[in-house]
Design a protein around this nucleic acid. Structure first.
Length: 298
DNA sequence: AAGACAATCAACCGCCAGTAT
DNA sequence: TATACTGGCGGTTGATTGTCT
């Protein structure tokens, strides 16, 4: 019983995604979600990509409200704290950081935080333990330098108390968890404020300008039409769906796509207009999609 | 200016768990 | 219950970009 490959590697495209591919995938997912099956999605969408690759591209790059780079000190410390608590559970850690993906957190850790973590751990290891530290075997400070897992958090790189947090800083796990939760709550507030400002600005922009690809599924008759003019759709006028950015399964439900005719709807509006084809710059691919049984399936 | 090296990050790989049949 | 399939995850790779000499 061998494991079947998720896709035929000989026939799928690999490597960096083009803007055209991104546009197709974004448009498709915004309208249909993953259509119930990531593996089948690329075929339905007319993409010559592995389903896993499509899923990864969406989750790590195209998904709304994704933030790249520019990690704050609060995020740094939260990552360090959470890593100290649970190790390399990147998906869990990322779920505590709104707009961050596990891949981003993982990359950030490997390129930046890991060095700081190890440096801090080394510093801790060379520092004589306090008189009341007790048995060295149970001392997380010494364990950090001798055992790879579970790692212990380094000394905070910023003064948590100076950041307005309650309680004393110590090496107690519960205290660290408490700090982590406080940081998380504080960070959530900051993020929400930032996202509110961004969304408000983007909504104003969407209402006053013509946009093709940043808008969600709004039931408009053309992908180049304003996303704010169609009141018949259940979607909001925001430039992206109101999704929980941590919930990778939260996709636009298929039921919002006009039932059995939604595939043709998608084809005629997403691929049928000249502007979309112009953007795609790939009439052959478009024809393939329009003629495919998979599109008629909808 | 050019080559070497380091840093960054998107993407891939392979495994595992959960679910459908 | 056994098997097949899919989604999700963590680890790793490789291309690109930036910095140093």
């Amino acid at each position: 019983m061998g494991r079947s490959p998720c896709c035929d590697k000989a026939s799928v495209k690999r490597g960096p995604w083009s803007e055209e591919e991104d546009a197709i995938l974004r448009s498709f997912v915004e309208r249909f979600g993953n259509a119930g099956n990531w593996i089948a999605l690329p075929h339905k969408a007319g993409l010559k990509r592995c389903g896993k690759s499509c899923r990864l591209r969406w989750l790590n790059y195209l998904r709304p409200a994704i933030r790249h780079g520019g990690f704050t000190d609060e995020e740094d410390n939260l990552i360090l704290s959470l890593f100290g608590e649970m190790g390399s559970k990147w998906s869990v850690i990322a779920s505590k950081l709104p707009g961050r993906t596990d891949n981003d957190v993982k990359n950030y850790w490997n390129t930046k935080l890991k060095k700081r973590y190890l440096a801090a751990a080394a510093t801790e290891a060379t520092t004589p333990p306090p008189p009341a530290a007790g048995d060295d075997d149970n001392n997380p400070t010494t364990q950090a330098s001798s055992q790879p897992a579970p790692p212990t958090p380094p000394a905070p790189l910023v003064n948590l108390d100076a950041a307005g947090l309650d309680g004393a800083v110590g090496d107690n796990d519960e205290l660290l968890l408490h700090k982590s939760e406080q940081l998380y709550a504080e960070l959530m507030g900051l993020i929400e404020q930032q996202q509110y400002s961004t969304i408000t600005a983007a909504a104003v922009d969407a209402a006053t300008t013509t946009t093709s690809w940043s808008s969600p599924s709004t039931g408009t008759t053309s992908p180049t039409a304003s996303s704010s003019t169609d009141g018949s759709s259940s979607s909001s006028n925001l430039p992206w769906p109101a999704v929980d950015v941590h919930d990778s399964t939260m996709m636009p439900p298929l039921s919002e796509s006009s039932g059995s005719s939604s595939g043709l709807f998608f084809g005629s509006h997403a691929f049928g207009s000249g502007s979309f084809q112009d953007l795609l710059g790939s009439a052959a691919s478009f024809d393939d999609v329009m003629l495919s049984q998979e599109m008629l399936y909808y």
